[in-house]
Amino acid sequence: MGLFAGLRKSISNLFSSGQQQQRIGIYGPPNAGKTTLANRIARDWTGDAVGPESHIPHETRRARRKEDIEIERNGKSVNIDIVDTPGVATKVDYEEFIEHDMEKDDAVRRSREATEGVAEAMHWLREDVDGVIYVLDSAEDPFTQVNTMLVGIIESQDLPVLIFANKIDLEDASIQRIKNAFPQHETVPLSALEGENMDEVYEKIAEYFG
């Protein structure tokens, strides 16, 4: 934890931690790295993980919450609950899972859980979150219908939002492409897998959601 050496709880942090817990939803398309990010945040500040990460889409089929994560940066402290959500999609086809070597029964069950999870994630967004981290794979085209719709929905709820351009370790990554797609929001580049640029990630979280 050398990264966080030198950080100390100041008196003002102690007082400000009495503030209301902010519930931050991690949203984005399937496979963007939402769970990897949620796990990294949870591990960095509490020591445990949130849930399994996988290259198979819709691994996360229930919104999972990790409570009481206290993040401190530059004398600002923010107390958050992280909600890792299933990736939002407008379609789910069980055959997609069969391509990942799953039996039909398993694939059908998984797709049913995935659809319930997406419905639940939409519900959380309308009712239960105070801020959103929108995670995108920087190596993919950000200009998709799901992304535009979701960001529009988040804006219409007047929720504070940060766009996370994840997977910057990949060769095809383009942060600029994401900035161009969502110029109205702050974009933070990172690699949740490799832990790149996490300092800025925590700074922005403290700044936006504190």
């Binding site: 407008t90 789910v92 086809d93 419905a119 939409m122 219908q145 719709m149």
Partner: peptide
């Protein structure tokens, strides 16, 4: 999106494509 998800059913309805 929410209602679409609740109506997806294997071999019958896989959801929607939407573009604006």
């Amino acid at each position: 999106i929410e209602v679409t998800m609740t109506e997806i059913s294997p071999d019958e309805f896989t959801g929607i494509e939407i573009e604006t």
